[in-house]
Amino acid sequence: MAAQPRSRRETWRLLFLISPSLFWLVVFFLIPLIVVLAISFGQRGTYGGVRWDLTLENYARFFDPLYLRIFGRTLVIALTTTVICLLMGYPLAYFIATRPPRWRNTLLVLLMIPFWTNFLIRTYAWLLLLRDQGFVNAFWTGPLHAVFAQLALAVPLGIWEPFLQATSAPLTLFGTDGAIIIGLVYGWLPDMVLPCYAAVDRLDYSLVEAAQDLYANRLRSFLRVILPLTLSGIVAGSILVFIPSLGAYVTPDLLGGAKSIMIGNVIYSQFMSARDYPFGSAISFVLMAVMLVGTLIYFRLGRE
């Protein structure tokens, strides 16, 4: 929005001002990106290096059902995470934004405090909660089971049987897609809440009153006025949750066990274990392309 720089001198000054950021982006983002792109056309060397026999084989390999299935699961997990974050985050954001100003800051701080803890530690905490010997199952097979046992003694009817059966064995929470989703939702919820909060905060409440004045009940004034006008927050929040969820690898690694891996894990293993840099690079680029397309679609939708 600045006017065109009139003089050469101004151009140089502008360049000077942005040169640190420019340097960082070029050296640590753009150049590595180009290197990865280049490698993706190469082939794995015998000892893990890159043999520069250019080929499209790596991209073709990606379309194997094995990898496609993993990618499909990744998409589903990321989408589910985004939807759950939306369903939980938007009402929370709306609630906070409609409190008196004094409360709002307190509530926001309360929301953010857990996120001052290291991400890895928080994810481990979920592991402790969800695994077979974890806290949830300790409660499930312990006190809860005991309660049903007591009820069965007190009221000797057959109805207690299924409950007793269910609570006698631990629930398989850990090592499932569900555990990954829980971990991801927990990790990315603030990224949904904050943009939605900003959008709701910006809303002119007199518009809601106008809608009610014009015979719209609370539900309809929400659907016709509040929702469309806070859509920008929803779009921003969704992108901020979806993209990282697509590329997640720590969470599925810790919470997913052996069977639930996401594409991020595949890329990681290509680089770390298999030492197949070209293949890993190719998958990375496919992932980036999908993220880009998804973001563009979402932006278009948001603008309608």
């Binding site: 002119d204 007199s206 518009l207 009153e209 106008a210 809608a211 006025v225 006008l229």
Partner: peptide, 8 residues
């Protein structure tokens, strides 16, 4: 309304 409150 004073600020018209037209739906933008």
């Amino acid at each position: 309304f004073q600020n018209y409150a037209l739906f933008p």
